[in-house]
Design a protein around this nucleic acid. Sequence first.
DNA 1: AAACAGATTGAGAACCGTTGTCAAACCGAG
DNA 2: CTCGGTTTGACAACGGTTCTCAATCTGTTT
Lengths: 145, 145
Amino acid sequence: MTNTDRSPDTPDIQRSAPVAGGRPTKQRLAVANVLDSFDDFRSAQEIHALLGTKGENVGLATVYRTLQLLADAGEVDVLRTEEGEAAYRRCSDTHHHHLVCRTCGATVEVEGPAVERWTKSIAAEHGYRDISHTLEIFGTCASCS
Amino acid sequence: MTNTDRSPDTPDIQRSAPVAGGRPTKQRLAVANVLDSFDDFRSAQEIHALLGTKGENVGLATVYRTLQLLADAGEVDVLRTEEGEAAYRRCSDTHHHHLVCRTCGATVEVEGPAVERWTKSIAAEHGYRDISHTLEIFGTCASCS
DNA sequence: AAACAGATTGAGAACCGTTGTCAAACCGAG
DNA sequence: CTCGGTTTGACAACGGTTCTCAATCTGTTT
């Protein structure tokens, strides 16, 4: 076994962290990749559809599995919509919230340093650690009124 | 099924708020009643089962419908567990949020006047009307750390 | 390079909570 | 009591998510 020839055939990879504790398969990379194409929360099915339009055909079950994997690894954030669906997005340092029109779906990203501080202090006050929170604002936008 | 408008109005009979905008039927009273027997959040199915053990047999669909009615009327609080199920409980008139332990489920009610104000101003600032919002704080409580 | 053992995938079935269907039961009014 | 709209309940339908399992792919060993 003295033959450890690392042929220079570096496909592509080198993306942002493959998939924690798993194999960087084509499908997983595709999912990890598509997660970079949007900033807001998308449902697993939307992500699956998105992959479809990009030519990357990945089974729905695989999308779910990969998303859970990423979520467990803390690489993506998960939240439940009011209808109970899970929505995912790449976990970013810039934490922000969404103001969503319940009629047309128009979304505005908003930041609320005050809210961040408030939730942290409230949680600490009650001895809770490892805090996370979800805050979504729903309303009817100007053009839908 | 087509019209759930508030009935003309009931002259006198109407003590402890029956079920907003509907008939105070046996089933609805049973659901409203069982809601007083616990303080934490219970799923619709648990509530249905609870009714069963009390001899009050109410159809599952009716339990769901009644719960939604009560929720719309603001008489009960609804929240989505992390698994996506809806959980209900009788609620206080005051609008508040929850600090939930993601391990044991212990819940603390918190109020945030500042947050209420913030969401309203943000929404108004962007021309959104008829605002509502959801805010849940998740963490690990002291005893689960 | 060929073979292996185990991880991964995908199509569809299975699950589960929730909502819709619709005839029968029910309620309050007249 | 009768009438018309409301409500109910058994069950089908739904939509999202998970499970099943044979076929496929991967990294490693031979």
